[in-house]
Design a protein around this nucleic acid. Structure first.
Length: 193
DNA sequence: TTTACGATTAACT
DNA sequence: GTTAATCGTAAAG
């Protein structure tokens, strides 16, 4: 198992795969909520579906921070989604965290999500941020230097890949990765198994 | 300044 | 399976 710093410097898609099986933890005061990353998507500068495709702007500025920064953006007027910035020198690359397998602070997460359905607790990018209590205030935070941490947890038995979800461009690129047969992966879209 | 739309979710038929 | 909710951002005027 490589440490986080090494993973974040890997090429975009490699980093997305390497983050699977790591544990993402958010500590807010006395409250800690976290889970194992089971689903990710890779985005980079030359990708038409990426926020950084058309260069730096106000919203995506965090994507150009050094690897290890947290890019949190607001979508559809309601949802927060979180990314981990990757690459070695402000290349505008990142990995979208799409789903976690809950491990810590499950009761707190259920209160925040207003559901007791464990399988839907952290399934979907906006569900992850809601369960962990992540929002725009966390944009730009450095991972492992404060409230948000990513630590080694286990090694995925098998990794699957396929087209990404919820985008209208470059939908044929297999830049979505998940842990094979993990029940906490969002299986929308009838993608390959 | 105005307009169209999105790395989505939850509710409903 | 289908659709409404909801608003910040980017692109166009």
């Amino acid at each position: 198992m490589k440490d986080l710093e090494a993973i974040l410097k890997l090429p975009n898609a490699e980093a997305a795969k390497a983050l699977l099986g790591m544990e993402l933890i958010h500590t807010d005061g006395a409250t800690t909520v976290g889970g194992v990353i089971v689903e990710t998507e890779a985005y980079h500068q030359s990708d038409p579906a990426s926020h950084t495709f058309r260069g730096k702007s106000r919203r995506n500025a965090t994507m150009y921070e050094p690897a290890g920064a947290l890019y949190v953006y607001f979508s559809y007027g309601i949802h927060w989604c979180m990314n981990v910035v990757t690459g070695s020198a402000g290349e505008g690359e990142g990995v979208l965290i799409r789903a976690l397998e809950p491990t810590r602070g499950i009761e707190t997460a259920m209160q925040r999500r207003k559901t007791t359905d464990l399988h839907r607790l952290m399934r979907g990018p906006a569900c992850v941020t809601q369960a962990l209590g992540i929002n725009g205030k966390h944009d730009g935070l450095k991972i492992n230097q404060g409230q948000v941490k990513i630590v080694p947890h286990n090694v995925p038995k098998e990794i699957s890949s396929g087209p990404r979800i919820g985008i209208s461009k470059a939908t044929d690129l297999p830049l979505r990765f998940w842990i094979t047969n993990n029940p906490f992966v969002s299986v929308r879209g009838g993608i390959m198994k």
